[in-house]
């Protein structure tokens, strides 16, 4: 079945449709599989996919039984995307809502410019992750690469392992009760057991870059 027919069939679904289970076999690394889903449908993808899988997902539950190429779940609005393998660069970029779970590792720029999405990575993430993240949560059970949270706004980052380096204006912050509660809720939603929220450190914005500083008034 050509990709366009699959995606058109998914787009044609309306609330109350009887077709709620889709299975994609042998995607063979194809690009743009199940992009633009806007109905509460389940899509099971049996194999690895290329660029932009599950992009703009709004309400679908999409699982990739394999690895995903660059830009998986880019600009997700709501719903769930699960990657059983690894994800390439900029997974969950610009996402506004929903939950992205990556069971392997994610490469560089994971959650870049995130705006409300929750991302859970079982493994480790690459450099420049959560760059300019505005809101939402990035939870990493493994390690983070260089320049985590560079130029961060208000996205909250939780890392259980080591952080190679923090980006500009990103700092470690105190883990308060409300953060532990939120992290616990996200871990539960992602189906993760045997990992305690207390094992994580929280990182966030120092709020020096994006707030106006009166000392810089002369520069304008």
């Amino acid at each position: 079945m050509p990709l366009r027919e699959l995606n058109s069939a998914l787009h044609a679904l309306t609330a109350g449709s009887n077709d709620t289970e889709f299975k994609v076999i042998n995607p063979r690394g194809s690009h743009a599989v199940a992009v633009g889903v806007d109905a509460p449908v389940s899509v099971q993808i049996k194999g690895s996919v290329g660029y932009y899988c599950a992009g703009m997902n709004d309400g679908g539950a999409i699982t990739v039984h394999g690895s995903a190429g660059p830009g998986v779940a880019e600009n997700m609005m709501s719903g769930t995307v699960i990657i059983e393998g690894d994800a390439s660069q900029y997974a969950g970029a610009t996402g506004r809502g929903g939950l992205l779970v990556i069971k392997g590792n994610a490469a560089s720029r994971c959650g870049i410019s995130m705006k409300g999405i929750d991302i859970v990575v079982h493994g480790s993430i690459g450099h420049m992750s959560a760059f300019m993240g505005q809101s939402g949560h990035l939870v990493v059970l493994g390690d983070a690469g260089d320049a985590l949270g560079d130029s961060l706004y208000e996205a909250k980052l939780f890392v259980r392992g080591t952080v190679k380096s923090l980006g500009s204006d990103c700092i470690e912050k105190e883990m308060r009760a409300e953060h532990l509660a939120k992290l616990s809720e996200i871990l539960q939603r992602a189906g993760i057991t045997g990992v305690r929220p207390e094992e994580f450190k929280r990182y966030g914005s120092a709020r020096k870059l994006y707030n106006f500083n009166i000392d810089n008034a002369e520069a304008y």
Partner: peptide, 10 residues
């Protein structure tokens, strides 16, 4: 094997 994308390897 090396590929710019996984598609090249399938």
């Amino acid at each position: 094997a090396f590929g710019s994308e996984y598609r090249a390897l399938v």
